[in-house]
Amino acid sequence: MAGKAAEETGGKVATEEESAQIANCIPRLRRYARTLLAEGALADDLVQDTLERALNRLHRFERGRDMRAWLFSVMHNLYIDQLRQPGLAARSLDEADYEIPCAGVQEPLQLRDVQTALCMLPVEQREVLLLVGVEEMNYGEVAATLAIPLGTVMSRLSRGRERLRWLMEGGRMTTSLKAVK
């Protein structure tokens, strides 16, 4: 990730093209943030923090790379940093935690609302579902953006979809789907 090595301070001024690219991504960044954080105000905070960090670290952005994917990874990392702050109700990112749905919901919920159902998935599954199914990234791009192995992308995708189906169908089916490696 050499980028433009001349920028020692990181205070590289964005070119007009780069500024425009970043600005164009704001709506996508906002919906990604709202996938991570349910509360709108916090989500917009995260977007603004992301923009600021991206501008400060623009020297790390490789020309020709997908600006959207880079911004998503900046946001993802910021979010993880926030989770790690002491005192926040952070959920560990261990695979072992995946059997625990984010809201502890295990009962039939008569839900047909995809947004509500999505919110009940662990955040790790939510973001993979968003990047794959909404942003239409390929699996390799998702792995690079989230800095996780391809196999982890696939298992999160598989578990996320299965749990979403379970929630959307009222939670009546048995979820026997375990680790898919």
Binding site: R30, R31, R34, V114, L130, R161, M168
Partner: peptide, 19 residues
């Protein structure tokens, strides 16, 4: 079901872009 939910999510989230 996965395909149907993928469509649902897609249209739900695409609507957000127009906000």
């Amino acid at each position: 079901a996965y395909i149907a939910h993928r469509h649902l999510l897609r249209s739900h989230f695409d609507a957000m872009l127009a906000e």
